[in-house]
Design a binder for these strands. Structure first.
Lengths: 336, 336
DNA sequence: CTGAAAGCGCTAACAG
DNA sequence: CTGTTAGCGCTTTCAG
């Protein structure tokens, strides 16, 4: 049997409330008693039972992160930072992978509902009413990660993401500033509003503001995978009389596929074609290292979105990670 | 206020014990009462409070995974699988990153001690007495991941890893069978017994059994990073009159560095030199795709090591992941 | 098959 | 500053 607060009280010759007080530092306790209690705690390696405590205090120090797929490379970046910021605030993180399966996600939410978590981060790609309905049952703050509501839906949970639209636009602008005029786009699914639709939109607007044409055949929307990137680039390759000089992609993983395709066609990156990634997940170890979009302070942004007092009642609110364009060697400046 | 078992009991006109029984399916309840209770539960979206429950049942359905660095690419693979197997057994996973910081690890263990977790997976690279002492305080099963005790230490916790020695040896054998005779090794730190020392040892024994020479200058032990791989290969390049035809590395990440170095010297992979990875983390998206060691069933092996009845009292026990050599295009067969 | 009641270990009034 | 005590929400004997 574990040692309880009673054992400590008995050993130190005080009441349980005194032990509780020194454990929590709640109210002042005379140095004398405090010393005795501390000694007993040390002696028995006493650790207060979290369940009992949370039963009365009604918080658990638990932040749940529900992931569509933990293997997603940007997941690791987020988890690291969320773990860090949680630790700073004396919380820990529950991580669950629902494998893109809505039913599993629902089950996991029920589990979390029982656990009385302090906050929930729901990472996904596709929002729907059933999910939203379940999210509404939580008493604790809930935020969406890696996704957000499209304009036509109403959502009371803040979405925490990079500003896909602006980031894609900035990347496009960057390539244009490097002398590129003919740029293609290989991105993820249009069903993924945040990472698919918005990035394409950013790309298009970036081109438009520079008065540059974009052929339909220079746009591919597939999935967020290397295979899809390869396939997309292949399609563009086959359907274009003149190859683009640069490609904006929806993720580093896609960029890897694009580059693989290019190499298969004996095209060099960046000499023949520049390729930009997105996420800075594998960008630095890849060959060539990828010019990409790096997100910053993800942990902080998540934490603030969860626990910081919001002034106004907010609907369809977005909290954005700061980001920066990182220039590496998969893109180059061209002159003509 | 949340709805409790009492509310349900009142609404259904039964006692709390009856509600508890139907919730847990523990003892048989008459269909009539059961129906009423179910209805009330549905009506109020009642979820039993996990803290209250675990206070009496003394288990929490929590498995804690303490990671040295969540960004480690193989971590994602493990987490995915551990999450899956946990879900199958109605448990969830707490994930904490201690950032290679022993003090943080100690703090996190204390936190877990309070939480009465059902099992602990301590992933790390370097075991010492202080850590072991803390691990011994857990009442729940504890396993080590990604590391194991060296021969000279005594450790009562099972180590769950790939068999680094055999895997490295098998990879070496594979390269030898592909016609390679001059093979170099670029691995991680020798302070990392499991992933450093043992892999080197496997490599050396693989070479020895084929009566192949290994020069000291063909061995580099650095860290598990791309930079280190690059540096290591560079050193080998500079110190060898004759270049090896193949390189065994300690991880995919290291292999990426080795390849980067090789390319910088205008050497082609695998045409000029074959390079083998380890882990199958980025192997498939890399360019070229890496021949590597893939681990299997990690989730199952972890779970079994934690919760399966062990026959004998075990000291310095190892539980190994199945693995296989995956042949991709970073290595080639040579003839001469 | 069902209900009453005694805790699980801890916190938080409330007295003293 | 310190101790007593009443729960937090649930499970689990123990009677009935």
């Amino acid at each position: 049997m574990d040692v309880t607060i009673k054992d400590i009280a008995a050993d130190a010759g005080v009441s349980v409330s005194t032990v509780s007080r020194v454990v929590n530092g709640s109210k002042s306790v005379s140095p004398e008693l405090k010393g005795r209690v501390m000694a007993s705690i040390e002696k028995f390696h006493f650790r207060p039972n979290a369940a009992a405590r949370s039963l009365v205090t009604r918080n658990t120090g638990l932040v749940a992160v529900l992931e569509a797929d933990v293997r997603n490379p940007i997941t690791a970046l987020h988890l690291k930072q969320i773990s860090d910021v949680c630790m700073k605030h004396d919380k820990v993180m529950i991580v669950c992978d629902y494998d893109f399966d809505q039913d599993k996600a629902l089950l996991l939410m029920d589990n979390m509902l029982e656990r009385n978590i302090d906050g929930l981060i729901f990472q996904g790609v596709h929002l729907n009413e059933k999910i939203l309905e379940r999210l509404r049952r939580f008493q604790c703050p809930v935020v969406l990660g890696n996704q957000g509501p499209s304009e036509d839906m109403r959502c009371e949970f803040p979405a925490v993401t990079v500003n896909s639209y602006h980031a894609a636009k900035d990347m496009t602008r960057f390539l244009i500033s490097e002398g590129h005029k003919h740029i293609a786009y290989v991105g993820g699914s249009s069903e993924d509003y945040t990472n698919g639709t918005l990035r394409l939109r950013g790309f298009l607007d970036g081109m438009r503001e520079a008065d540059l044409q974009v052929q339909d055949s220079d746009i591919y929307q597939g999935e967020f995978s290397t295979e899809s990137g390869e396939k997309g680039m292949n399609q563009i390759y086959e359907n274009s009389l003149e190859l683009p000089t640069a490609v904006v992609t929806g993720s580093d993983i896609i960029a890897a596929g694009v580059i693989r395709c290019l190499k298969a066609h004996k095209l060099k990156v960046p000499d023949d074609i520049s390729v930009a990634g997105f996420d800075d997940s594998i960008s630095d170890i890849y060959d060539p290292p990828l010019t990409t979009v790096r997100m910053l302070d993800q942990g902080e942004v998540f934490y603030k979105a969860l626990f910081e007092e919001k002034g106004e009642a907010c609907v369809n609110e977005w909290c954005y990670f700061p980001y920066q364009i990182v220039r590496r060697s998969s893109t180059r400046r061209i002159t003509n």
